[in-house]
């Protein structure tokens, strides 16, 4: 592993960059399809929701503290708090839950 470490890092970086760069450099015209526009509108919500649940429940040392963090994040984001407030609030909730 040690001798190849920077080769690993280079492979990660190149693949990731190509994934991001190809659509942005190749697509230079407006896509007319209403369906595609609709799909692209819903896309980030679907991805982030899928990434959050159920992974959030195993992100801390136990499911109870994770649930506490999830609920606090849900309430804070429902009331439109900033990214930082929601993230920090969730972390603090986990910390407090794990004191018991």
């Amino acid at each position: 592993m040690r001798s190849h470490i920077f080769a690993y890092i280079a492979v990660m970086a190149i693949v990731t960059f190509l994934v991001r760069a190809l659509p942005l450099t190749l697509i230079r015209t407006e896509i007319k399809s209403k369906w595609v526009h609709s799909f692209l509108y819903y896309l980030p919500f679907a991805t982030l929701a899928a990434m959050t649940v159920p992974a959030i429940f195993t992100a801390t040392s136990n499911v109870y503290s994770a649930t506490a963090g999830f609920l606090v994040a849900l309430v804070l984001s429902y009331f439109r708090r900033s990214l930082l407030t929601v993230a920090a609030g969730a972390c603090i909730a986990v910390y407090i839950a794990e004191l018991f």
Binding site: T52, I56, A59, A66, A73, L76, A87, A90, V94, Y95
Partner: peptide
């Protein structure tokens, strides 16, 4: 352990 929730908190805020 608590920092583990930061990423997901951010996702929910979005």
């Amino acid at each position: 352990s608590a920092l583990g929730l930061a990423l997901y908190g951010m996702f929910l805020a979005i």
